[in-house]
Simulated scan of single mutants.
Amino acid sequence: MTQRTTTHAFFDAHTGTVSYVVHDHATRRAAIVDPVLDYDFKSGRTGTQSLEGLIDCVRTQQLQVDWILETHAHADHLSGARHLQQLFGGRIAIGAHIREVQATFKTLFNLERGFLPDGSQFDHLFEDGETFMIGETPATALRVPGHTPADMAYVVDGAVFVGDTLFMPDVGSARADFPGGDAHALYRSMRALLALPPETVVYVCHDYPPASREAAWQTTVAQQRAHNIHVRDGIGEEEFVAMRRARDATLGVPTLILPAIQVNVRAGHFPPPDDNGISYLRIPLNALNSPTSPPSPNPK
């Protein structure tokens, strides 16, 4: 079958994140998936170096951006969605269950009264199975909870952008102890993705490669079913859940979770500035990984 789209990948080595531009040949209309805004933890400064290749692609390919798609509210990088929207337009979209994530973190960070956990910070909230168009190419949003309650995958032209739901086969799966995460739900979401046609191209959002290979981000459903170390055919739900829970118990807090979540639940907006014109992030002391609060996420 002739492909109706082309996908361009951009790997950010600092966070292990892969962002994508997928464009429709007939119309030159495009969607961007999971863009990364740079953040220097020591200085508190943001930057756009990780976006430059993606920006150059949109410009040189003369694309019109219709969608900026987030697979979930990431804990390992700040979203570049708002910066890209300022440059190119397009609607910033995420799954409708982002409201649950927003409610959790509004409480943890004690966010300002004006922050409403209703998803209104985004331009569109996808329901499970909702279809949309990238130019003349149809796409489908699939809810794949487990890593978070709000994770989405996007099926486009024989490919699926899976976010953190699946990693490359030799890395396996993301952790499931994010607030609202669930290892049982993650297993079922992965198996639902692996029920897609075996030739379906799988584009992952992160890669943390072993020393034996370079970073990679493209595989297939067939390869995942045969080789994924956590969820290949023959591994049952209870076996996976036991493995995932044991592994999650050993993982630390991601370096950028505190700044990332505060920006990402706002669709890439910074917190509103104080009366001196400066935006501030909040650091909850003695809250993460304590017996009285939910455990926190880490990509692996």
Score class of each variant (00 low, 15 high):
residue 97 H to C: 06
residue 51 L to I: 04
residue 157 D to R: 01
residue 278 I to D: 03
residue 54 L to M: 06
residue 209 P to K: 00
residue 194 L to P: 01
residue 294 P to S: 06
residue 189 S to G: 09
residue 68 I to F: 12
residue 242 A to F: 00
residue 75 A to P: 03
residue 57 C to I: 06
residue 109 F to W: 05
residue 291 P to N: 02
residue 1 M to A: 14
residue 76 D to R: 08
residue 228 N to I: 03
residue 300 K to Y: 14
residue 274 D to R: 15
residue 231 V to R: 05
residue 243 M to K: 08
residue 16 G to D: 09
residue 137 T to M: 13
residue 198 P to L: 01
residue 121 Q to T: 06
residue 137 T to N: 13
residue 76 D to Y: 09
residue 99 R to T: 15
residue 215 A to H: 10
residue 277 G to E: 04
residue 108 L to I: 15
residue 157 D to F: 02
residue 280 Y to S: 03
residue 184 H to L: 01
residue 117 P to F: 07
residue 169 P to W: 00
residue 47 G to K: 08
residue 257 I to Q: 14
residue 199 E to D: 15
residue 234 G to P: 04
residue 125 L to Q: 00
residue 126 F to N: 01
residue 251 L to N: 12
residue 80 G to A: 09
residue 268 G to E: 03
residue 156 V to E: 01
residue 108 L to Q: 04
residue 54 L to V: 03
residue 293 S to E: 13
residue 42 K to E: 13
residue 180 G to R: 07
residue 117 P to S: 11
residue 149 P to L: 01
residue 264 N to F: 02
residue 140 T to S: 07
residue 39 Y to F: 15
residue 289 N to H: 12
residue 272 P to N: 07
residue 235 I to E: 06
residue 261 I to W: 11
residue 50 S to H: 08
residue 7 T to E: 04
residue 2 T to I: 12
residue 116 L to Q: 06
residue 83 H to S: 06
residue 112 E to M: 09
residue 236 G to P: 00
residue 264 N to A: 13
residue 89 G to Q: 05
residue 118 D to N: 15
residue 239 E to L: 04
residue 217 W to T: 10
residue 51 L to E: 02
residue 244 R to A: 15
residue 144 V to E: 10
residue 83 H to P: 02
residue 196 L to V: 05
residue 132 F to C: 11
residue 47 G to R: 08
residue 274 D to L: 13
residue 248 D to E: 08
residue 29 R to I: 04
residue 225 R to I: 11
residue 202 V to A: 06
residue 118 D to L: 13
residue 248 D to N: 14
residue 91 R to V: 11
residue 276 N to V: 02
residue 261 I to Q: 03
residue 99 R to Q: 12
residue 51 L to C: 09
residue 154 Y to G: 12
residue 258 L to M: 12
residue 79 S to E: 10
residue 88 F to R: 03
residue 295 P to G: 09
residue 273 P to T: 13
residue 18 V to F: 10
residue 291 P to L: 05
residue 144 V to P: 11
residue 30 A to W: 01
residue 126 F to T: 08
residue 259 P to W: 02
residue 191 R to A: 03
residue 36 V to N: 07
residue 10 F to V: 04
residue 285 L to Q: 13
residue 208 Y to R: 05
residue 26 A to M: 11
residue 265 V to N: 02
residue 44 G to K: 06
residue 119 G to K: 02
residue 264 N to L: 11
residue 45 R to M: 12
residue 145 P to M: 00
residue 41 F to S: 14
residue 20 Y to K: 07
residue 42 K to A: 14
residue 239 E to W: 03
